[in-house]
């Protein structure tokens, strides 16, 4: 036991708590299994230890110890790779795949969360050593809240208006409002689709959003999340029953065609609205220098 024992233990505990808060199993169903959770809490523990030990190391004038943090960076990039590979493998067996963009988004956040854990543990230990335990607890809570805030991005509802539209056929062409979805040749399938399918039109609120929701990965994420939350009316060997999203080239609206098991319009609108906007899909043409910002308002 020395003067740093309590601060370090405190920092590690704070970091692990932060990791547990950020490790929630929600509708994304990942990670669902106990082993997955153990892996992430253990890695969170390592991250927290690194963050907590950094402060006493500096106080003891052991500046080289900070280079350990670079080791951490390498380690957690590995976590991202691990997540990406696992999810890619699993994705091939999904009825409605997540899509690469969504997977990358999940992998990025797994890496990012570990850095937040380091940061939280570091703050906790620093405040404990420099000031007192009470301030450290307060600072820790602030760091946890901040971490939680940093980790939640915007959702689809913030960037588009969602309206339900009936599906209809023009010859063999399936349409949601005026947006062409696909060609279904067989009468039987057409009847199934009219019976079980639902159509939604997502109208972008501004110019930036048009490119964002046009992104194929973002569209696949919408389909995946609705399939997870509402179920999906399809099986392997029925490629005609595939939920699809197509775009209106004129104004950037997208037409969502889904085949939910739970056919409730209100719920479906809520589910589509709460799909996360994927970091990698976000485009900001309004930030482009040659283009005046007013054009996009």
């Amino acid at each position: 036991m020395n003067e740093y024992t309590y601060p370090i233990v405190f920092g590690i505990m704070l970091g692990v708590i932060a990791r547990m808060i950020m490790l929630r199993t929600d509708y994304r169903q990942y990670p669902t299994y106990l082993h997955g959770k153990i892996i992430h809490i253990s890695l969170g523990f390592i991250a927290a230890s690194l963050g907590a030990v950094a402060v006493p190391a500096i106080m003891e004038l052991e500046f080289t110890a900070v280079t350990f943090l670079t080791l951490a960076a390498t380690q957690f990039r590995e976590v991202r790779n691990m997540e990406r590979n696992t999810l890619n493998e699993l994705d091939q067996l999904e009825l409605v795949p997540r899509g690469k963009t969504y997977i990358e988004g999940i992998a990025i956040s797994f890496e990012g969360r570990n850095y937040l854990v380091i940061f939280t543990a570091l703050i906790g230990t620093l405040l404990y050593i420099v000031f007192n335990p009470y301030l450290a607890i307060l600072g820790g809570v602030v760091a946890l809240v901040l971490g939680k805030g940093l980790m939640s991005g915007s959702i689809i509802k913030d960037i588009v208006d969602i309206k339900q539209h009936d599906l209809h056929f023009d010859g063999a062409g399936l349409y949601v409002d005026t947006i062409y979805i696909m060609n279904i040749g067989l009468k039987e399938r057409q009847e199934e689709i009219l019976k079980y399918g639902m159509g939604f039109i997502l109208t972008p609120k501004n110019m930036n959003v048009i490119t964002t929701i046009g992104n194929l990965g973002q569209r696949q994420a919408i389909l995946h999340d609705t399939a997870v939350s509402l179920g999906v009316f399809r099986d392997s060997g029925t490629p005609a029953l595939t939920p699809l999203i197509k775009r209106d080239l004129d104004d950037g609206r997208i037409g969502v065609f889904i085949l939910p098991q739970l056919r409730d319009v209100e719920k479906a609108i809520k589910v589509i609205g709460s799909v996360p906007v994927l970091e990698s899909a976000i485009r900001m043409p309004s930030e482009s220098k040659p283009i005046a910002k007013e054009e996009f308002e």
Binding site: G171, A172, M182, N183, I184, G185, L186, K187, E188, R189, S236, G237, P239, A240
Partner: peptide, 19 residues
């Protein structure tokens, strides 16, 4: 032809499109 297309669709895991 519809019946045949439906069968072929099921067997080949393809989609029957009508041109």
């Amino acid at each position: 032809s519809e019946a045949l297309a439906a069968n072929l669709e099921a067997i080949t895991d393809g989609i029957a499109h009508s041109l």
